[in-house]
Design a protein around this nucleic acid. Structure first.
Lengths: 216, 216
DNA sequence: CCGGATCCCCAGGGATACTG
DNA sequence: CAGTATCCCTGGGGATCCGG
């Protein structure tokens, strides 16, 4: 990308990560950890292979990522974030928090991935009752599955399935994520197709950040 | 910009503000407040007029800004951020904080503006001694002037000159801002051309955020 | 002088095909 | 699987011009 040529830290940041797709590549590496070319391409539906290749080269040159040769059983190159790349997490988090307001609109052409189901609660939801016993929630949406664990004041999340969850949330992405992030309430989520199974009261301890405590 | 078509809040955010120049326009409106077309163009050296015009239209359509007709003495249209636009401040702040690491390199072709001198301390510097009496620091760099006021645990800053500052910092942008944001120390700043006048010990109460307390 | 609109040119992105 | 090569086309940069 052509430089903005401005002595301003925002402009400087955009000189490095302002190109199309670049921040989303960093997102995938944050969510997936070290990943292969194909993993990245799969987590970035719509990107052209040559463009991903170009961006990875640029990111390596800017020292946001490194390419390592994985040991024999894998025998492929892995892309991983450097310190500098990892340091982008707060910026992506802030941007994602701002972007939540646009998640209500439904677009049939939207793609969806399990890791996007996982990061939203981890970044945007807080534990309202740190002293209550830990709980596990299974999230399922459009063939994507994630597990949310809340307890001791922390909320963590990862892709996959839980053996014996306290609560199961199943429904279209904007119903599940909309409810968790607080852009819609339970009633609206139900109307959008949310189905629950288990201890529904676990939801009350989850508090979307940026919202007042006590919202359902 | 073409949509990423991903149901992810980061991708959704970038659908809206991912275009070239867009975030810098928001930056200028945050720093300047309601501004005229010409003020914006002046705060965005390098932008083409048609592009600024296009972006403003897109931003208005996305409801990040509104265009208002100023009352008679001014009689021009003012662009101002809406609630949605103002809500981008934390994201710009996080991005700018990350971008600080690239501010050490000096490039002769870089442009500079007084408002960029002002926002950095306000966003990236904390008051180390909330109980000490307030102090005023005059910043001067490349014909840009700003006043930094610290006291009661708060750091604020604005463009312009102070009548009777406790301390004056004068030098090239990367010396003044580098020192304040903690990317270089006092000795390095002096080597880069920093000149001081007044109570130099005021600097010790300023703490660059993201650094350990007690760094000079 | 302010607030753009118009035109031309070129770099950068998108889609597809192909290769080690 | 992990990219590279190619072609096309959109969107940005720069200059100029125009109405209020």
């Amino acid at each position: 990308m052509r430089s903005y040529d401005q002595y301003c830290s925002i402009a400087r940041a955009l000189d490095v990560v302002g190109d199309r797709w670049t921040l989303l590549i960093v997102r995938e590496l944050l969510l997936q950890g070290p990943a292969r070319f194909t993993d990245l391409k799969n987590g970035l539906p719509g990107i052209a292979a040559n463009l991903l290749s170009t961006r990875l080269r640029e990111l390596e040159q800017a020292e946001l990522i490194s390419r390592d040769d994985a040991p024999p059983p894998v025998a492929t190159t892995l892309y991983r974030l450097t310190e500098t790349g990892l340091a982008l997490e707060p910026a992506l988090q802030a941007l994602g928090l701002w972007g939540l307001r646009f998640m209500t609109s439904v677009r049939p052409e939207d793609t969806f991935r399990a890791q996007w189901l996982a990061y939203a609660p981890e970044w945007f939801v807080a534990d309202n009752a740190p002293d209550a016993p830990p709980a596990t929630i299974q999230l399922s949406s459009a063939d994507a599955h994630a597990v949310l664990e809340v307890g001791a004041g922390r909320v963590s999340s990862h892709t996959g399935a839980a053996p014996d969850p306290d609560l199961v949330l199943d429904g279209p992405p904007h119903a599940v994520l909309g409810l968790l992030t607080g852009v819609i309430d339970f009633e609206q989520a139900t109307q959008l197709g949310l189905a629950t199974r288990g201890r529904r009261e676990v939801l009350t301890r989850l508090r979307p950040i940026g919202r007042a405590a006590g919202s359902p």
